[in-house]
Write a protein that binds this DNA or RNA. Structure first.
Lengths: 260, 260
DNA sequence: GCCCATTTGTGCGTATGTATG
DNA sequence: GCATACATACGCACAAATGGG
C-alpha cells in the first residue's frame, strides 16, 4: 500500500461537505474491505501521508485514530501503522455481528452461506418499522455453521436505495459479504447495529429448512443496522436452533454505560 | 455544572503520564456517574473550559468527542454541550449490557436486584481464565425483571483489586450499580465487554431460585469485562429463563466489521 | 426571510514527548 | 545513543449549525 494509491482512493471518497478525516477513513477502509491491501501491510507513515495528501498531520491522525478504534489498523510507535488482520481477514469471515466460538474458545467456526431466494415483497412486513419503506427486497439464506448446524437468515433492504442487491448475480450474492456490498454501494460504513434476542418458535418452513422438529424453540436474533448513526439501512432476522456452541457478540461497545 | 467544579475534579483525575484528554474525560464521566450533575445539564462551552482549565481547545474537543462517542454527552452547535440522559439516567438503570424491552418496544422493563450471597471462593472456577486470579469474591443475585420473571446473576471480582465489594454493606450493594462502583474505585471506565450467549441448563439451585422446572433450558450469558481495553476486571454469568421478552443488546459497536 | 451572536465542527501548522529497534 | 514513527498538546482560523430578533 503506497501513498499514491491512497491518494487516488481519497479522491474517489472525497465529497463536498464530507470531512476530510472521514474521506481518508473510508478510503483506507475500502482498500482493506476490497482486499486491495492484505492484513499486516504497513501503511505510509503520518509524515509521508501529510506530504502526499492534501490533508494536514492532525487531521490524518484523527482519521487513523478512528481506524484504530475500529480495529481496522494497528499503530505502533517507532514502527508504523499496519492493517489489522482481525477485522476483515479474508473473504466472508463473519456473517453476523456475532460468531460462533470454536472448540479452542479462541477462534470461530467457519460459515457457509447459501442463498435460498431473492424477491421483492410488499409491505407492511417485519422490516417496515425499521426501514420505513413499504416494499422491500427480501433475501433468504441458510447458513451452515462449521459442519454442525445451520441458521436461517431473512434479510431486507430498500431496493430503491440499494439496487445492487437486485442486480447482483445470485452466485455472487452467495459469496459476498453484505456489509461490504453496502459499504461499496454507499461509500459509508455501518456503524450502529441494534440487536434484539429472545427464544421463539420459528415458522414451519424455517423449521423444515433447518431440519429441526416443528415448534422447536430457537434463538431468534433481530438486527437493525444503521448507516452512520441514524440512517436505517437493513433489517435482518436470524433463527438459530438449539446448540451447545456459544455465540460471541462482538459488542465492542466503547460506551461506558453504568451497571454490573 | 460550572467550570470551577470541573477544574477541581480535573485535578483529582490528573495523574502524571495520563493524557489530559483522558483526565478531562474521566472527570466529566465521574461527575455524571456520581450523580453530581443531572441529565440535561448544560456544560460550560469550549472556550470557557479552555480558559479556565489548563488544557487547550483542541484537547478539550478531543475529550468531549470521546464522551459524545460514548453517549455520555450530546453537543449541539449554537447551543452547547449537554449531559445525556440515556447513559446513566439515575440509580441502577440497566443491570446488564443488555436490557429487556417493554411492551412499547421503546423503553425497558424496570429491574429489582436482590443480593443472595457474597463470599470469597477458592479457585479454580469459571472466573479463573478471565480474571487470572485463583481466589475471587463471588456475588450471587436474583434480579426481578418487571413483575414477570427473574434472572440469576453470578458475579466475580478479584477482592484484592476491588476491596470495595468486600467492605460495602450488603444493603448498599443491592442498590448500587456495579459498573459505577468499579468506576469510582478505579477512576477508570469499563470500555470493553465481551458477551457469549448460548442455551444451557442451569444448575439445580439456580432453577429452584428462579422457580422454574429442573433441567429447563435457559439462555446463558457470559460476560467478560475489561478496564480499558485489555485489563480484565470482572466476570459474570447470567441465566435467563424462557421468556417472550426481547433482550436488547446495546451493541453500540462502532467497529465496521464486514458482514451481513 | 434575513442578519447576527453563540457554539460547535473542521482543519492547519508546529512543538515536544515517548516507545521501538 | 540515535533515528524513526507514533502520541500528545497547543494556538489559531474559519466553516457550519442553531436560535433569537
Amino acid at each position: 500500500m503506497n501513498a499514491i494509491d491512497l491518494s487516488q482512493l481519497l479522491e474517489r471518497f472525497s465529497r463536498p461537505g464530507l470531512p476530510k478525516y472521514t474521506a481518508l477513513h473510508d478510503a483506507v477502509l475500502h482498500a482493506v474491505a476490497s482486499g486491495q491491501v492484505k492484513p499486516g501491510t504497513r501503511m505510509p507513515n503520518e509524515q509521508e501521508l501529510a506530504q502526499v495528501l492534501p490533508i494536514s498531520l492532525g487531521t490524518i491522525q484523527r482519521a487513523l485514530r478512528q481506524l484504530v478504534d475500529e480495529r481496522v489498523i494497528q499503530r505502533r510507535p517507532g514502527q508504523g501503522s499496519f492493517i489489522s488482520d482481525r477485522s476483515s481477514g479474508g473473504q466472508m469471515e463473519h456473517p453476523f455481528h456475532c460468531r460462533f466460538v470454536d472448540d479452542s474458545g479462541q477462534g470461530y467456526l467457519p460459515v457457509f452461506p447459501e442463498v435460498l431466494s431473492r424477491e421483492r415483497v410488499s409491505g407492511p412486513g417485519p422490516w417496515t418499522a425499521h426501514l420505513r419503506c413499504k416494499d422491500a427486497l427480501q433475501i433468504i439464506r441458510r447458513i451452515r455453521i462449521g459442519d454442525e448446524f445451520s441458521v436461517h437468515s431473512a434479510f431486507w433492504v430498500d431496493p430503491l436505495r440499494l439496487p445492487v442487491f437486485v442486480s447482483m448475480p445470485l452466485r455472487q450474492l452467495t459469496s459476498e459479504n453484505f456489509k461490504q456490498v453496502i459499504f461499496r454501494a454507499c461509500g459509508q460504513a455501518i456503524h450502529k447495529v441494534d440487536l434484539f434476542t429472545r427464544q421463539d418458535v420459528p415458522p414451519l418452513e424455517v423449521s423444515k429448512l433447518l431440519d429441526i422438529p416443528a415448534r422447536q424453540f430457537c434463538s431468534s436474533l433481530r438486527v437493525q443496522a444503521f448507516l452512520g448513526e441514524t440512517d436505517p439501512i437493513y433489517y435482518q432476522r436470524i433463527f438459530t436452533p438449539p446448540t451447545e456452541r456459544e455465540l460471541h457478540i462482538v459488542s465492542d461497545s466503547r460506551a461506558p454505560g453504568f451497571a454490573p
